[in-house]
Computed example of a mutant assay.
Amino acid sequence: MAGRYRLTSVETVESEGSWLFTARDQHGNDEEFFLVPCADEDRPPVEAWRNRCTHENQRLYREDVGAIVRDGGVVCPKHGSMFDSCSGYCDNGEAADTTLPGVEIDVDDGQVYLVDDDVTFLRAGPSRDDDDDGGPSSTSHLQL
């Protein structure tokens, strides 16, 4: 990716609690990432994390609820592990002692930009993959 790509505003992330986008990594894979507010005054007001728990292939951001954020942490909906919204680090549950992979963003004048040279922005929202748990999806069109 050359330069930077405007994703959304800090205000949108703060009002919605999280914001999802899809990008293509350097290997050609489409990956979901989500933005969450960060309350640490030494960091940007928003951080971006890969939309998968480090314990197993579980989405942290879901279209029906967004990312569950409590007490400054992103909660895994399957096992309850909590990842710090600002650092991505988890110190509890099944994912303890792991850190969410992130992508580099920049915040300028209230706008959030993707500036990571290893990914290319594709779209706001989820990937085209409707498979929620990483397992096989049904392609049957049988009608009874």
Rank of each mutant, 00 (worst) to 15 (best):
V13G: 13
E16M: 13
E16W: 05
G17P: 09
W19I: 05
L20M: 05
F21I: 06
T22I: 04
A23E: 01
R24A: 10
R24K: 06
H27G: 00
G28I: 02
G28R: 00
G28A: 02
N29P: 00
D30I: 00
D30Q: 05
E31V: 09
E32N: 00
E32M: 01
F33M: 02
F33T: 00
F33G: 02
F34P: 03
F34W: 01
L35H: 00
V36C: 04
P37K: 05
A39F: 02
D40C: 03
D40K: 12
D42I: 01
P45K: 06
A48C: 15
W49M: 08
R50I: 14
N51M: 12
N51W: 07
T54P: 04
T54N: 13
H55N: 12
N57W: 09
Q58G: 03
Q58H: 05
L60H: 12
Y61P: 05
E63H: 05
E63I: 09
I68V: 15
R70T: 14
R70P: 01
G72W: 05
V74G: 05
V74Y: 04
C76M: 10
H79N: 07
H79V: 03
M82K: 04
F83T: 03
S85N: 09
S85T: 13
C86A: 03
G88I: 03
Y89A: 11
D91S: 07
D91L: 01
A95N: 08
A96E: 15
T98Q: 13
T98W: 03
T98G: 02
L100W: 00
P101A: 15
G102T: 04
V103C: 15
V107A: 13
V107K: 07
D109I: 04
G110E: 12
V115C: 09
P126G: 11
S127V: 08
S127W: 03
R128W: 08
D129Q: 08
D132S: 09
D133T: 08
P136H: 12
S138H: 08
S138T: 14
T139D: 15
T139S: 14
S140R: 11
L142Q: 14
L142K: 09
Q143C: 10
L144C: 06
L144N: 11
L144Y: 12
